[in-house]
């Protein structure tokens, strides 16, 4: 378990990370999501002891990363944004060095070396110079390095950046595989990637943690209310009249609780968009709408509940902050 408490990091006057507090539980795949410059790499560098925080602290299984670095670092495998590889070495030589530095004994090292080479699919290139390898393979060697010593937590900083689509899929599969035996924390600025791999998401923006949770609960709790779009086979006045009972039931009102807009279409139909408030259930409202219109004898040609996607949340959250920090 990793816990970060009130992490703050200043570069000169610039605050890269501000008052970050979170816990990483064992056995999950965590995604660190945020636009470029949000403080993802800085946070990861602090968590792995590569960088000191201006204030706040990180503990790994109770070991402070700066006060007991040896114990803490043994629990972590880290792949920085640029894989830290020595280009003149072969993957095998390189991994041997990392394994030795992590304190693995001879037999143990030979054993783990074979395991991680197989696990990351780099066994075929073990004796080629790293400088000759493609970016995808270099990334794999970087991940293999993080896996040595069998750490509980694997931290990967933007592991798919700069890879081709096939390589990206392979690396994602690999991360998913790793998630079965390790706690994985990886960063990305691509939402769909995080959504595809992670079961917990942390969203960072401008150095602050602005949301944390699993994908569904993020959608449910943070979600800007969704919308329901409908097209009624009637003019604008009739449509408005049909909506009146809903307003009377408290489901709908024009004064803010549930705003809606009506637009007459060219063919005599009316298009309405109703925005849901946070505590409203889209299904309930759809049901009410259906009966309201059928009671008024108006056919509904279209009734579409629109859920806001995580993409919308991401954009909205990160953009809000932009305005905030600009003001």
């Amino acid at each position: 378990m990793i816990s970060a408490e009130h992490l703050t990091k200043y570069y000169g006057d610039f605050a890269a990370v501000r008052d970050l507090t979170f816990t990483i539980e064992d056995g999950h795949v965590y995604g660190f999501l945020g636009p470029n410059g949000a403080g993802k790499s800085t946070t990861m560098n602090i968590m792995t002891g590569c960088l000191s925080a201006t204030s706040g602290r990180v503990t790994i299984d109770g070991h402070d990363i700066f006060e007991e670095p040896k114990e803490a670092k043994k629990q972590i495998g880290y792949l920085p944004e640029q894989p830290p590889l020595y280009l003149t070495e072969t993957p095998e030589e390189y991994l041997r060095f990392v394994g030795e530095a992590k304190g693995l004994k001879k037999a143990e090292l030979a054993d783990q070396l074979e395991t991680v080479l197989l696990q990351t699919g780099t066994a075929g290139v073990r004796n080629r110079r790293i400088g000759e390898l493609s970016k995808g393979y270099r990334q794999r060697v970087g991940i293999a390095q993080a896996l040595l010593g069998n750490p509980r937590v694997i931290i990967l900083d933007e592991p798919t950046v700069g890879l081709d689509p096939i390589q990206i899929l392979e690396i994602r599969d690999l991360i998913r595989e790793l998630g079965k035996n390790h706690t994985v924390l990886f960063s990305s600025h691509i939402l769909s990637e995080v959504q595809a791999i992670c079961d917990r998401i942390l969203i960072l923006s401008h150095g602050r943690l602005i949301a944390m949770g699993d994908a569904e609960s993020l959608e449910q709790t943070l979600l800007t209310p969704g919308e329901i779009a409908l097209i009624a086979d009637a003019g604008i006045e009739e449509t408005r009249a049909a909506l009146v009972p809903l307003a009377e039931n408290g489901l709908l009102s024009e004064d803010g609780m549930l705003p809606y807009s009506l637009n007459p279409q060219e063919d005599g139909r009316t298009r309405a968009v109703l925005r849901l408030t946070r505590d409203q259930n889209a299904d309930d409202l759809c049901r009410a709408l259906f009966f309201a219109f059928s009671g008024a004898g108006i056919a509904l040609l279209e009734l579409t509940p629109k859920k806001a996607s995580l993409e919308d949340i991401f954009l909205e959250l990160t953009e809000d902050r932009k305005e905030e920090s600009a003001s």
Partner: peptide, 10 residues
């Protein structure tokens, strides 16, 4: 940037 590896090793 291999110094990052050295910093993160125990």
């Amino acid at each position: 940037k291999t110094d990052q590896l050295l910093y993160s090793l125990p």
